[in-house]
Design a protein around this nucleic acid. Structure first.
Lengths: 229, 229
DNA sequence: AGGCACTTGTGACGATTTTCACAAACCCCC
DNA sequence: GGGGGTTTGTGAAAATCGTCACAAGTGCCT
């Protein structure tokens, strides 16, 4: 008990080493699988099983958890619900996040209607554009506002995360305005590498790049694996 | 000259070591930046400049290229157009790819209309669904076909890459059918880890996971960088 | 209570990826 | 033609990431 407390404190006080990007994504996947297990009424799960479901190895699962403390019971595995809660807290998804959407074009529109965002805790609280045709339009119960009001809207609604779905050439400028307004995390759909000050997190989603990666693998490595029919 | 030839051959014959996933994505970004430079009429570019535009380091750029041969001239940098051509060939994007879209729901619909796919060499040549309401419907000049015909359609149209935009629970089954039909690369939008035989490349795109990664960074690391206004 | 079967947590190891540093190559100008 | 300023290509070092192996716990059964 004393030992556990000490360990917990040491983990809380020192974010020992930075958690890798891939580790974060694995945590996200663990949470998803744990929720499914919870719904299925499973009480405990060993790292081996969780690993299989998340597409990784048992050692990797345990290593990932060990960065944050020790949640399991030896011989028994992990209690599903407490582990899910714990990981949710670590990921910061044990709450709802107000999210800003910038760009009401094709991509923005699709993202706005994507139901999994809301169901996973991310709520659009504003949609911004700069086109006079779009600003003011009602959009599924939300009025599109002008991007020039970003400096008012972001603090007003406690926004820290924004989704950027504007054309490539505009992305850098808009992103800078977002950061000035207080945004600290950007999910960027523009095929542009954003130059951001430290303290701002950017995740790029470039669908063409993903297809090109497949193209490469099929073009170069394709020869060796003409395999399983 | 002799040396260069020898080196070229050695690179062609032996895919020496496997190219990392992140390296592939960087190549993709290099090509995009090189195209912009080409359009701007720039003749040559040093690794330092290309690195700045692609958001990496000069050493990284040179290292990435060195896996495939040597394209630059010492003291001068790289000739933009030849380099772009060379990298395009390596990535396999110096041609057009017929692509299969599976799932004509919200996500599939958005992807189908996403214009950058076509403009970057990826052509949808079939759209599949299993809903009786959707199959047979005309969709921007393309008829939605039944997913059960996948075994005929894939070889018939020379498809090797598919985009999977079906609900999570169906993804594994559909993916297996795709692979049986001959698909070797899958861009997967379902929040499911696909279990695939070797020789099949899968790239996952999970937008919620991307937001959760931002959530984590803002929740944990956010304290230290309350910085630049 | 004690042995057994099982699983965690973690230090050590191995592999991979990135950064560093510098010799070799190249152009330009005088 | 030779010197100077620049940049590539690449071994070697550093850092990061994943795997292994095993001591230490834990529940269960007898």
């Amino acid at each position: 008990m004393d030992l556990a407390l000490t360990r917990l404190l040491s983990h809380l006080s020192s974010p020992s080493r930075r958690i890798s990007d891939s580790a974060i994504r694995r945590l996200s996947r663990y949470v998803r699988e744990l929720e499914a297990m919870e719904a299925a009424g499973e009480g405990t799960v060993p790292s081996r099983v969780l690993a299989a479901r998340a597409g990784t190895t048992a050692a990797q699962v345990r290593k990932d958890f060990s960065s944050f403390g020790s949640f399991g019971k030896r011989g028994m595995g992990y209690a599903v619900s407490p582990l899910r809660e714990r990981l949710s807290t670590i990921l910061g998804v044990d709450r709802r996040w107000p999210v800003l959407l910038v760009g009401a074009g094709r991509v923005g529109s699709a993202l706005f209607e994507y139901p999994r965002f809301r169901s996973r805790g991310f709520d659009f609280v504003a949609v911004l554009d700069h086109s006079p045709e779009k600003v003011g339009r009602e959009w599924k119960g939300m009025r599109i506002e002008h991007v020039r009001d970003v400096a008012r809207i972001v603090p007003e609604r406690g926004i820290r995360i924004a989704i950027l779905a504007v054309p490539g050439p505009e992305a850098q400028k808009v992103a800078e305005d977002l950061v000035s307004a207080g945004v600290r995390g950007i999910l960027n759909f523009a095929p542009t590498k954003l130059r951001m000050p430290p303290g701002v997190a950017v995740n790029d989603v470039d669908l063409v790049m993903e297809l090109e990666a497949l193209s490469f693998l099929l073009s170069s490595g394709g020869k060796m694996a003409e395999g399983p029919e």
